[in-house]
Design a binder for these strands. Structure first.
Lengths: 236, 236
DNA sequence: CTAACACGAATAATCGATTATTTTGCGGAT
DNA sequence: ATCCGCAAAATAATCGATTATTCGTGTTAG
């Protein structure tokens, strides 16, 4: 009796992922990267050909994206990238202003030494990452965006509640998507100082100051982006 | 040339729904109704046969459920109902205690006359619906559960922020799922009085009292269900 | 007797093709 | 010239079947 050598015991870890997961991840990144216009249709056939997979796989990935709020679905009319309005972006920002300060209080109250260390690490990484790539110019670098997200998330991770952190993740993703298409580009604000003050207040367990800085941080961002073009354009 | 009579111009609104949506809804209700054990596998083949649809449809519905947190997926191992632990249930309850009071403050601050009217209507409906069906005994009636959800949601709808309300919906659903399998049954607490006090404080625009009552409402529920059997069993 | 292995059955994931719906383009009537 | 209605094409939704992976079972080497 022949024992075949090509046993499926040892599998290549790189190819060891579901097709739909891979397509989902790639699509997610593409949308978040802004490679699609707001409202643009996501056509299964085109995507299937583009990614060399079947319709079912693409469809699965798209449904997953809908669940995440990164795509929308119109019955019998296919999938599309959501076209978030400025209004939507303000709503997301308000939701963050509503939820994150309370989470931060919990985190400051409960965070342990490991949390403190991770906050310092995340802040260091953020502070040492250049926000803009001079050559690319367009927008934040992906490295900075990720460091930014991780700093805010790490800060809140002290609360120790995965349900709340999941809520944060959702809001952050929605915000990234909406921010990309909002009317204004991000102004040159001193985000660096704000982040440092946030870190210091949190590690000093000064909840009042920390939440105040956080609210201001979130308010300034959205205000500068949408409702106060005067500040940016300096009219008259 | 023959013009076929069965033109698709006039469509029956009842059958005018995507198959996957219908299966998704039915599955969702079945799971929330507790027809599956925690951790039980959701087998596509079985469900496809049961609902008289193809695998792809069931699969789509299941992916959608995963996105909602009502099902989990293990790569190459299929779908299953999540087995929420008591710990998870406490985390969800804490998340609600964290988020909902702030939302309620917003609602009380912003709610208009229409909101007031809807709050009264929702409370009336809740108060006049019998929580338990004597014959069924097992659990809350679905009518009461829905009225309960709608009362809490209507109360928060005054905030006018769909993003926050979406967050509420998620937490509520997760809570319903987790509560069903938590160790304790719901004790005979005077939820009726709590709801009335909540309504009154909200309509009186008394944010402090309202949030206090809400926090207590949420705390008592989870405490009675999980961490304080003493209160229920009255030991010694 | 234990434990690892091979084999077969069950189930998950994927695919290619079919059916149903919407969109598009054309022709005719007002 | 514009609008309405009917095909034809495009695209979405669904299906049945194929391939890949895991799980259960019996067998055999140690």
């Amino acid at each position: 009796m022949v024992y075949h050598e090509g046993m499926t015991r040892t599998v290549d870890p790189s190819t060891k992922q579901m097709l739909s997961e891979r397509v989902h991840t790639r699509l997610r990144e593409a949308i978040l990267r802004g490679e699609y216009a707001p409202g643009e249709a996501l056509k299964p056939q085109q995507l299937a050909q583009q990614h060399q997979v079947s319709l079912a796989v693409v469809r699965e990935a798209l449904v997953l994206l809908v669940g995440e709020g990164i795509a929308v679905r119109l019955p019998n009319r296919g999938f599309a990238v959501p076209d978030f309005s400025d209004r939507r972006w303000q709503q997301i920002a308000e939701a963050r202003r509503t939820i994150e300060p309370v989470m931060l209080r919990l985190a400051i109250e409960r965070g342990d030494l490991d949390w403190e260390a991770r906050v310092r690490a995340a802040h260091h990484r953020l502070a040492r990452t250049r926000p803009y790539a001079p050559e690319e110019g367009e927008y934040y670098t992906s490295a900075w965006s990720e460091a930014h997200r991780l700093f805010h998330r790490t800060l809140l991770e002290g609360c120790g509640n995965p349900v709340l952190l999941d809520t944060f993740d959702r809001l952050w993703t929605a915000g990234e998507l909406a921010r990309r298409w909002s009317a204004q580009r991000t102004p040159d604000r001193d985000g660096v100082a704000e982040h440092r003050r946030l870190e210091e207040a949190a590690l000093a367990r000064d909840a009042d100051t920390a939440t105040e800085v956080l609210v201001q941080h979130l308010t300034l961002t959205v205000a500068a982006l949408t409702s106060a073009p005067d500040q940016v354009g300096r009219r008259s």
